[in-house]
Design a protein around this nucleic acid. Structure first.
Lengths: 335, 335
DNA sequence: TTTATTTACGAAACCGTTTTCGGAAAAATG
DNA sequence: CATTTTTCCGAAAACGGTTTCGTAAATAAA
């Protein structure tokens, strides 16, 4: 089938050992034979078998990125960032989707004990409450770096954004704009990002001397229609909120739809800020005030940190937290 | 480090051959020893080394998906579809981005000759004009199925949507809505999808008895700001078009922006239809008439066809074209 | 009882590289 | 010239599974 080292060796009357060394420019091989080997290898279109070399070298030159889903502009951009540095480093990237299922996440991580990958980039699922599965894979010797959605009790590198501050700022912005009753639309309560954003939200309220209301935080699901109903119900009430913070991208559409259906103009009746990276924020009516996360940069940073640990021996990956700030893009939906 | 077959063999006083067979439930092994092997394997948390078995079996249980980019809702959804069936089949998926570069695409495909993957799913880059690189990889014995962006002269399975018809319909819809001068905003002229959409556009015009105008097709780039300028220029002219067809998602934002900046109301002054899967189409003002491609389904179908060829021996992948129709969602931007 | 067949397992080759170790020849050193 | 050091290469042992083939014991058939 494909050409192997042995084939080259035979044609040049050399040993496989010599070919192998020559191909990696070893000093043990004379320039002349290297030249001959290079030429024949090129001529025969030789490509080394990655599995043979992975087996022998006990390293696969591939990393895994495990994500909750990819139908979200954040993760799409993050993948771009990851792939760009992986490609530069000559690594391959395997992608795994948990579909927000903890069970699936567990199974995926368990598989990594086999040595299929040299390192892991991960954003946890919305169902993930415990972290034994990731501690286990780290204990097995695999470097793992979290990005965006992290397990806070796992001691490893994390690339996050300033969730607390950005949501604090968003809330503060709404308050300054005159909102009296703001509702934070939450995602999975087990998610670190959600809780930090929620905390920033609460802090901003209390800093402004606004007393907590049990109704000012509402949990949304992963079901688009369900979310629409929840938001519609919320805005239909007599004491409806005059400000909304969508903690995740997919809540934007139901919010705008519900406001249109209820004839509540944005921002006059309801002011809106969304955590989203959608370019379309610019062309919504009104233009959407967003908190945009540095998705590409976070992916890039996560991969960079991971490769640092893969390249250096004994590089410690513990407790290295990188924070890349999000940006509050003030537009018309919250003025 | 990790536990190997040899470890299990030693503990049970059996040979590695026996363990290997037992683990795959071979009939050569008695039920009792199978039981013992299963139990110990589970207890020791044994996970087979994928590289060892790939090397020996000459199959990797992994496929490659090579894409131009992933910052597009179409490809995000397609990845979801692909991953879902790959996961069901127990396959791993490697992702490669060409960033619309032909050179990169060539290098990526060349690498596959090494046997790293068992099959390939691919959507070609915007720069791809020749197809020798894909013919080569197919000749090397790797099944490859195209989805969405195909090389028409390569004889293999293709999953596409009805680009001609959907653009014909879109154009027809604009004409029925009263457009007199429609401009088709094109992408890479080397792309099959672009040319088919363009052909559908032209056909609709000629079917309606409208004579061709050299100015009714305008090429856009991959640069967002550049596209804005092009569209802005176009709409600033005295004889500006009264209908626009955006052949790719990323043109939507610049169109809406340019219309807003020039104070051209949609759909009164300009009617717009975009090829896009963005959910936000529902909340634009006016709501955007779209041609949505069955992205998830196409990814799923592509993967399914590929696995059919991977599982069966001598399965022929030639000239198998699957067409999954797109949907024209009529909304307010083109009424 | 003898012969044929099945059952259950092990020895060893193999997949294609990498890497260690050893050694002959050449070059450098004393 | 004798000795040491380089230079350049090959044999062979890994890496961790899979698979072929052989065989002793158990069972079935004659």
């Amino acid at each position: 089938m494909s050409v192997k080292i042995k084939d080259i060796a035979k044609q040049l009357n050399l040993s496989v050992a010599t070919i192998s060394k020559a191909l990696k420019d070893s000093h043990e091989i004379s320039p002349e034979t290297k030249q001959r080997v290079f030429e024949l290898a090129k001529k025969l279109n030789y490509t080394p078998n990655p599995y043979a070399s992975s087996l022998r070298k006990r390293s696969s030159k591939t990393i895994a990125v495990v994500l909750p889903e990819v139908a979200d502009s954040f993760f799409s951009l993050a993948i771009n960032g990851i792939e760009s540095v992986a490609h530069d480093k000559g690594y391959h990237v395997l992608i795994y989707l948990t579909h927000e299922s903890f069970e699936r996440e567990e199974a995926i991580l368990k598989e990594f004990q086999s040595g299929r990958v040299d390192g892991i980039l991960m954003s946890v699922s919305g169902e993930t409450c415990t972290s034994d599965h990731v501690k286990e894979v780290i204990a097995a010797g695999l470097p793992l770096v979290f990005f965006d959605r992290v397990c806070e009790d796992v001691e490893t590198a994390k690339i996050i954004t300033d969730d607390f501050e950005s949501c604090y700022n968003a809330t503060f912005h709404l308050l300054k704009a005159g909102c009296k009753k703001i509702v934070y639309l939450a995602t999975s309560s087990s998610l670190s990002i959600n809780n930090k954003r929620m905390a920033g939200f609460k802090q901003a309220l209390s800093d402004k001397g606004i007393k907590k209301n049990t109704n000012d935080i509402i949990s949304c699901t992963s079901n688009t229609e369900g979310n629409y109903k929840i938001i519609h119900e919320l805005l239909k009430k007599k004491n409806r909120p005059d400000g909304l913070i969508a903690s995740v991208e997919k809540l934007t559409t139901p919010i705008y739809l519900a406001c249109a259906d209820l004839d509540l103009s944005i921002p006059e009746k309801v002011k809106v800020i969304s955590f989203t990276n959608l370019q379309a924020a610019l062309i919504l009516t009104p233009t959407l005030t967003t908190v945009t996360q540095p998705a590409f940069e976070m992916g890039k940073a996560a991969a960079t940190v991971l490769f640092r640990s893969l390249e250096k021996v004994n590089y410690n990956l513990k407790k290295e937290i990188t924070i890349i700030p999000s940006i509050l893009n003030v537009r018309n939906s919250a003025s």
